[in-house]
Design a protein around this nucleic acid. Structure first.
Lengths: 146, 146
DNA sequence: ATAATTAAGGACAAAAATACCTTTAATTGT
DNA sequence: ACAATTAAAGGTATTTTTGTCCTTAATTAT
């Protein structure tokens, strides 16, 4: 569905929204550890998410780290996809065509269109806050079959 | 959603199902041209699809080429994903976790699960034949904004 | 048999994605 | 001011994906 980068970005954003606040910032290592991602690579991804403080905010120095504002929590999760430049989902069809439309449907158009609509609605309507429900257990680890 | 390889594989399979028969085989170049894919790369993908004559069949030599049997047309399009070894869709969740389940839901589980179900159903229940509806125009080209 | 045609298969190349490492900049506490 | 801490930024390395090319094998027609 998504690239690894985008998966990490979504996990990181949700985790930060669950655990952080402007008073309680999270370090790179805390985040990478929690979402089971390589720290150095995660640093790059967090850089993209903090660009213009759009989704995630950050401060350097002691007691610095990453956090999210209450305002940013109200953003739809589509913002994460935008920050990661992963928008094929919204543009292309399931066969990879970008000119597939109602008037020029590809052979899978009528099968996939309703699903695509739901995917778009999910990312457009659900906010970061709504996914970061602290009453739910986080469960981010990929291989915790312990 | 899918890798380029899988996109080409789906397009090729549907095109072959639309245009070919054991009596009317299609050459690599015909296929690559029709689905707007690089010929040499498409050759590799067709090799995977013809493995064990599972989805696509082929014969070498003059008047040879690729075609699909009536039997193979009855296969669900999931077979194409299997041949391309692209099955993350069926296993992983939208955050890339493979241990996300009803008992251990990830933060997006309840939002994504119904959509995932529909995707699986689409690939499990729709046959190649059903997508290769010859009454529909093919429209495979990516950039035919003419 | 031979030549022509077409897919199969292997080696290789380019590009993109993923991951790491080192230096720099900002912030804080002493 | 200085040292410690932490993210930002840049470069580099590795892996995977995508794509090309060339030789081999199979089939057909002559």
């Amino acid at each position: 569905m998504f690239s690894k980068s985008t998966e990490y970005a979504l996990r990181a954003t949700i985790y930060i929204a669950q655990e952080s606040s402007p008073e309680k910032k999270l370090s790179l290592n805390q985040i990478a550890n929690a979402i089971d991602s390589p720290p150095s690579f995660t640093a790059k991804i967090l850089q993209l998410l903090t660009k213009d403080n759009c989704v995630i905010s950050s401060v350097r120095g002691p007691n610095g780290g990453f956090y999210i504002t209450e305002t940013a929590k109200q953003l739809p999760i589509r913002k994460v996809l935008e920050a990661m430049d992963e928008q094929d989902l919204f543009i292309k069809c399931i066969l990879g065509l970008n000119n597939c439309s109602e008037t020029k449907p590809c052979p899978m158009h009528y099968q996939y269109q309703p699903i695509k609509k739901q995917l778009i609605k999910l990312f457009e309507s659900k906010t970061i806050l709504q996914l970061a429900d602290p009453s739910q257990p986080a469960n981010f680890l990929v291989n915790n079959s312990l």
